[in-house]
């Protein structure tokens, strides 16, 4: 078994309105910053042990599918690194 850290990034699908990101962008602009756009995402770091990178990725993929992301509105990426 090898120890891994999986990083799951969950973001809204392209085209889905993100009112919190828009509000955050407006607040930054109010502070005087110049920016073209702002997108927000949730990031989860999961420590786990698995026989291989592939097995770790499969397990974390299922976590994302079943809970961390909502496929109706989200896309997600999984990145696996040895810990």
């Amino acid at each position: 078994m090898t120890a891994y850290t999986a990083t799951v990034t969950v973001r809204l699908k392209h085209g889905v309105l993100d009112p919190e990101a828009e509000t955050t962008q407006r607040a930054l602009e109010r502070l005087g910053f110049e920016l073209a756009d702002l997108r927000s995402a949730d990031r989860f770091e999961i420590d786990l042990e698995a026989d291989s990178t592939g097995e770790a990725e499969d397990r974390v993929d299922e976590m994302a599918e079943r809970l961390l992301a909502n496929p109706t509105i989200h896309d997600y990426d999984v990145d696996i690194a040895e810990r």
Binding site: V16, L17, D18, P19, E20, E22, T23, N70, T72, I73
Partner: peptide, 15 residues
């Protein structure tokens, strides 16, 4: 969220 109905109810446009 449980799949009983389709779609999602998410953050109001007004935030």
């Amino acid at each position: 969220e449980s799949g009983l109905t389709e779609g999602a109810f998410t953050t109001n446009e007004s935030a």
